[in-house]
Simulated scan of single mutants.
Amino acid sequence: MSKAAAKTRKGRSVIVHPLVVRITHWVNAFAIVCMVMSGWQIYDASPLLPFVFPPTITLGGWLGGAIAWHLAMMWLLIANGILYLGYGLASRHFKKSFFPLSARGVWSDFRSALHFNLSHTPGVYNAVQKLLYLGVLLLGILAFLSGLAMWKPVQFEWLAAILGSYPSLRWLHFIAMTGIVGFVVIHLALVIIVPRTLPSMITGRVRLDDETGVHHEA
Rank of each mutant, 00 (worst) to 15 (best):
Y133R: 02
L145H: 01
K95F: 12
W75C: 05
V52A: 12
F30I: 15
L85A: 14
A160K: 02
Q155Y: 12
F183R: 03
V20W: 09
G65D: 06
M73H: 03
P54H: 12
I186S: 07
F98T: 01
K152V: 01
F144R: 00
I175T: 13
W26F: 08
A90N: 10
M201A: 08
R111I: 06
A143K: 06
A29V: 15
T24M: 05
S13E: 14
I82G: 06
T212F: 13
D210K: 09
G86S: 07
G64F: 11
D210C: 11
P50I: 09
R92Y: 15
R205P: 02
P195A: 11
V191L: 08
L148N: 05
N126H: 04
S38W: 01
F110M: 11
D44Y: 07
I192Y: 09
Q155D: 11
A66G: 08
G64V: 15
D44I: 08
L198A: 15
H25L: 04
G147C: 02
R9N: 07
H70D: 00
L49G: 05
F53P: 01
F99M: 07
A149M: 09
L89F: 14
L77F: 00
V106M: 08
A90W: 13
V194Q: 01
T121S: 14
K130N: 04
M177W: 05
L71E: 05
I162T: 11
I186Y: 09
L208F: 03
F156E: 03
Y125Q: 05
K10N: 15
I23Q: 03
T178E: 07
I202K: 12
L71H: 03
A149E: 06
L142G: 02
F30C: 14
R111T: 11
A90I: 08
D209P: 04
G140M: 12
M37I: 11
R12V: 09
I141W: 07
S38Q: 00
I42E: 00
I23D: 01
M1L: 13
H215P: 01
R207C: 05
S200V: 12
L48Y: 11
G164A: 10
T24A: 05
V136P: 00
P54Q: 12
M35P: 06
R12F: 06
H115P: 02
C34H: 05
P122A: 02
S38P: 02
V52I: 15
L71I: 08
N126E: 02
V20E: 07
S13T: 14
I192E: 00
G105I: 05
A127Q: 13
L132E: 09
P100D: 06
D209W: 09
H17T: 14
N117P: 06
D44F: 08
N117C: 13
M177A: 13
A127W: 02
K152I: 01
A45V: 04
W107C: 04
V181D: 08
P55H: 15
A6W: 06
L172M: 14
L85I: 15
P18G: 12
A79Q: 04
T58S: 07
P195S: 10
F30V: 13
K7W: 06
G164Q: 07
P199R: 08
K7I: 13
D209Q: 15
C34N: 07
W158G: 02
L59N: 01
G64I: 15
A189F: 10
L101F: 10
F110H: 11
H215W: 04
A31L: 07
